[in-house]
């Protein structure tokens, strides 16, 4: 899969996320609690709500609709009502740009 330039490192506050749309798909890109960047699918697996309006709590992303939680490093569903894991994507940082490897 090709690397896609998604945003500048400064575009995402510490412990926050943004939405990134490309090719009809939507992704969430995180600036994690450890200072690293992560990427997951952009929609909650429970009811397809955009996670970008949610809350980053340490390494969790909490969905804005029913407060389901995922670990955004692994995509693992951590708190009901989410049961299905979130897809994750590789991320690298080059020259202060965040690149994600997505289809």
């Amino acid at each position: 899969m090709p690397w896609t330039d998604a945003c500048a490192t400064g575009d995402i506050d510490a412990e926050d996320l943004i939405r990134f749309d490309r090719g009809g798909a939507t992704y969430a890109i995180y600036h994690g609690a450890d200072g690293k960047f992560y990427a997951t699918a952009g929609l909650c697996t429970h009811e397809n709500v955009h996670l970008c309006d949610g809350l980053v709590l340490d390494f969790m992303i909490e969905c804005p609709k029913h407060n389901g939680q995922f670990d955004y490093r692994t995509g693992e569903a951590k708190r009901a009502p989410v049961c299905v894991n979130l897809k994750t994507f590789p991320v690298k940082v080059e020259d202060n740009r965040v690149l994600i490897e997505v289809p």
Binding site: H46, E47, K65, H66, A80, P81
Partner: peptide
Amino acid sequence: WCWSHARHHS
């Protein structure tokens, strides 16, 4: 009830 409440919110 946590599931019924999720539905109540959706």
